[in-house]
Simulated scan of single mutants.
Amino acid sequence: MPRGSDNLAADTPDGDTVRVRDEREVGGRWRRHQHHEHLAPGAALAPWVDHLWTVTWDYAEPYEQKVPPSASVHLTARDGAPPRWHGVTTRHVARTLSGRGRVVGAALRPGMARALVGPVAELTDGERATGGPSGLVDAPALALWLEDRLPATPDPAALEAAAAVALVRDDPDLRRVEDLAARCGCHPRRLQRLFAEHVGVGPKWVIRRHRLGEVTDRMAAGAPLDWAALAHDLGYADQAHLIRDVTDLLGETPTAYAARYPPAEIL
């Protein structure tokens, strides 16, 4: 993989030494080569699909794009190739982009993929072919193909799983599986089984992902971060435990991750 000449090797507040990086990876420069678009799904897809998306790129030399972990199952079609299912990703993944290309996708609502892919945990951190046709080169075409394969109505258990994930998303004070189970009116073990079948990961991971999402959102916005205060707000014992969790999830420390965004002061 070609690398740029920017040398970012330096000690950082989270104890990391940043490696020499591809200059396109720093300060949001990758955005010069990529265009991202999100679209709302139509009424028929809305119960199952959170959003449709398109990414186009133009790179003279190959670029390794890091994609953060996702709690959604995605349906994608790259450069008109047959569509593929991508399971929930529990850590960041790297996709190599080169030349000009385009990928369109549909992000399913967490909890709603079971009717389309089978037990969702079996697809976690993996992907497989759908058996679909080539030529789905835009989001509307992918949406129509997916719509033809949907059941008439959502499964009640899927709706229950989706509602549990929505509770985690909407209530930042939910930090323990036992508390989520109580809110859902079920035993934690039943919640674990429900998430394995319909979400693809356990409720503890989903809670952790949504709480840490606040960290990455703030870094992406370029806002100053007080790590000690943020750790306290998110229920961590101290800054070190928060940074450890972010690093485990993203595969790099927060400061290294933040370097890919426009200039931000990381306190």
Rank of each mutant, 00 (worst) to 15 (best):
D248E: 11
G185S: 11
L242V: 07
I207L: 08
A181M: 09
W205Y: 03
P262W: 06
D171R: 14
R209W: 05
L242W: 04
C186Y: 02
P254Y: 14
F195A: 05
A240T: 07
R169L: 09
A231Q: 09
I243W: 04
R183Y: 07
A229T: 14
Y236K: 09
G213H: 02
A182P: 03
D233L: 12
T255P: 03
Q239M: 06
R190Q: 06
E252W: 02
A228W: 00
A181Y: 11
P188W: 08
V201G: 01
A181I: 08
R189V: 09
L249C: 09
E252D: 10
R189W: 06
A240E: 11
L191K: 09
Q239T: 15
R208A: 05
L167A: 14
A229S: 14
L249F: 10
R208I: 02
A231C: 06
Y261T: 12
D238W: 02
I207K: 00
M219C: 12
R183Q: 09
D217E: 06
L191H: 12
P263L: 12
V199D: 02
A240S: 11
E252T: 15
A259L: 15
L191S: 08
P188I: 11
R218D: 01
R209F: 04
A220V: 05
H232Y: 07
A259C: 15
V246K: 00
A223Q: 14
P262C: 11
R244V: 04
A259N: 05
G235H: 08
A258Q: 14
W227H: 09
A256T: 13
L234I: 10
G213D: 06
R183E: 08
P203S: 00
D173A: 13
R209Y: 03
A223Y: 02
G200I: 10
A166R: 15
A229K: 11
